[in-house]
Design a protein around this nucleic acid. Structure first.
Lengths: 365, 365
DNA sequence: CTTCAAAATGTAATCGCTTACAATATAATT
DNA sequence: AATTATATTGTAAGCGATTACATTTTGAAG
């Protein structure tokens, strides 16, 4: 087969005995063109192998039909299950609306912001979803507010600083509150907390709830990195105490998995001896044994919402409607998923009746 | 802050009292321009906020610096851990070489091939990595051979049909052979096989190896879907037989996890009563308890190799060197990772000595 | 102080498509 | 059949860059 040279609209139009304008119109919805010629052009295009050059279209139409996803400070978006899930939501919403998804490109000498500049000021994409890491200085993004290219941020409610860009915010309170309430209702009094970062709203809720209940004991708080190894070590430390906690709330599922292993290593059972609650509801939470009670973040939904909002913004601009998207923010909450890693507190077991049901192995259900 | 209108190269050049050519040269490596003017232009660009329009550049330079990743038949690339891992490899290699990654865009009425047509013939990307599903008719891709836009396929060695595009092939034999050999050496004779699709090289190896050893028994082969539910049900069926297998090779880690749960439900232990081997080495294989012995596929590497080969192809074309990439294919193998879900066969336990070491809980190591 | 090559800059054509506007064909109306 | 409105097509000017080629500067050599 010969190497087929670029077939341009000019060549193609000539061969059909039509003008480039007519051919162009055949490829765009709702243009003034008779249905019969459109059909003819389209079918002829198939046989001759003509496809309009996307880049030229973008230039002429002044938009790329591309959405960028950027996570400043982390080039390897696809390595983090949370970000992948987010990206998935973005991709889906983008696809539905007819937009492609562009992932981080070349690392720029000027750092992360430089990529955004190139994307936004360079019009490489029609809009950008920016996932803001916990400690990112939001102010540095202000530069991009009110540009032609819309941005939307994904942040945590507790994020410090502020900026005038619209955002989808993740509110971790609800799920954390449910988790603690769940444990307290089960009769737990010594509830540990293994966290991966010093301060966020989950930590705050933990302290508040336990103080309210009168059980707060800072010795039960352990900080570690979010790995199974970290979780395991942290749990061992907790179990080494003379009176160990009967329940532990872990800041991430990964930590929870490590904790679970540590409990087993000490010859104890989950949830009979120690209840464990995770956070994030990764795929592995459901697959672990026992299946993890955990706080679910509907991550894909966040990505979807952000993208939908972004696209709505395009439409508004196309309609000439005022953007009016600044300072707007949507909030997404979390929810507790109860599975088999939590049960009544040890001492409660002897006295309550419900216990008999709560300890039926759930895996059989 | 005012909505900032597009600053084009013309406006920008005018404001500097220079020609557009000079400005353009400042932004491209190795052009004839004095270092002092380049510096001046670049710094002025920063303060005025000028960034060259990417789309226009692409059109003029006749390349997009974008690589596409397509998985015909599956719009939701990011939902499958295997594909994510692949995408990750592609993204990394692309990033190193200065290319961005474009994911599937709008579903086309004409089906999956239509997207490829638009990408390749429409020059939306400089090259495409195509992940070919198991039963995909490779012939349909022949259309894209020898075009201006290079493609590379990621396939399984056993894939049917053929096509003239270069590819990176995944060879599953090695790992499967090691897995079976491992089990046979541990003294297992009744080795089950839970598979998710009727015929591929893993299945073939299983049959061959067991026949060789004289232990082949088709009653020990169960087919199911690749979910934990499927694995669990399949394992229950296997365990229901009068004499159950002492080891089971699962076609995917997900199945293996389900199988593991089923074994526990029957009051048996892994690996003491039943050994389990998975396949794929997903993250959860390492995190499961006991950690899964499994066949590792270095998926990211496959993606990376494919991308590197693709990019090499761009360079060759730029240098005017003949492409000569057709029919070239690289092969990537698999390898067995031994963890704690496999141990000596039950009857062997009583007689061998090594057993004492093999059953030490690995989690303590 | 010329002279000439090399370096730096400018001019203008080009990349492949879209789209406002003009021109023509078709249909509807009287 | 003439007239007008409407649907279709053609013409040509962009879109915002790059780059071959022409021109001017610069600097070294004669």
């Amino acid at each position: 087969m010969q190497d087929i040279r670029t077939l341009t609209i000019k060549d193609f139009a000539e061969r059909l005995g039509l003008s480039t304008a007519t051919v162009s119109r055949a490829f765009t919805q709702g243009s003034n063109i008779s249905e019969v010629t459109r059909e003819k052009i389209l079918s002829e295009a198939r046989v001759l192998g003509y496809v309009p050059n996307q880049t030229a279209r973008r230039l002429a139409q002044r938009h790329s039909r591309l959405i960028g996803l950027d996570y400043p400070g982390n080039a390897d978006v696809l390595a983090d299950p949370y970000l992948v899930e987010l990206a998935r939501g973005v991709q889906k919403a983008a696809q539905v609306a007819g937009y492609g998804l562009l992932l981080n490109t070349v690392p720029r000498p000027g750092g992360d912001i430089e990529l955004l500049r190139e994307w936004i000021l360079g019009r490489a994409v029609d809009g950008v979803v920016i996932v803001v890491p916990r400690d990112f200085p939001l102010e540095s993004l202000d530069y991009f507010a009110n540009r032609d290219i819309p941005c939307i941020l994904i942040t945590q409610v507790s994020s410090p600083g502020g900026c005038t860009l619209p955002s989808v915010q993740l509110d971790l309170e609800e799920g954390a509150i449910s988790a603690l309430t769940h444990l307290l209702r089960l009769g737990h009094e010594r509830i540990g907390f293994i966290t991966s970062n010093c301060s966020d709203s989950v930590h705050r809720i933990y302290s508040e709830k336990l103080r309210e209940a009168g059980f707060l004991d800072t010795k039960l708080i352990v900080e570690t990195e979010s790995t199974t190894g970290g979780g395991r070590a942290a749990m061992h430390r907790l179990l080494a105490a003379p009176v160990h906690p009967t329940a532990v709330f872990c800041r991430t599922d990964i930590i929870a998995l490590g904790a679970l292993r540590a409990v087993r290593e000490m010859g104890l059972r989950v949830p009979e001896d120690v209840s464990i609650v995770g956070h994030d509801d990764l795929l592995l939470a459901e697959l672990s044994d026992p299946a993890l009670t955990t706080v679910r973040i509907d991550t894909a939904k966040i990505g979807r919402l952000a993208t939908e909002q972004l696209i709505q913004c395009f439409r508004a601009k196309a309609d000439g409607t005022a953007p009016a998207l600044n300072n707007v923010s949507t909030c997404v909450g979390t929810e507790l998923i109860v599975r088999s890693s939590t049960g009544p507190a040890l001492k409660a077991k002897v006295v309550t009746h419900q216990n008999r049901f709560d300890t039926v192995p759930q895996s059989v259900l």
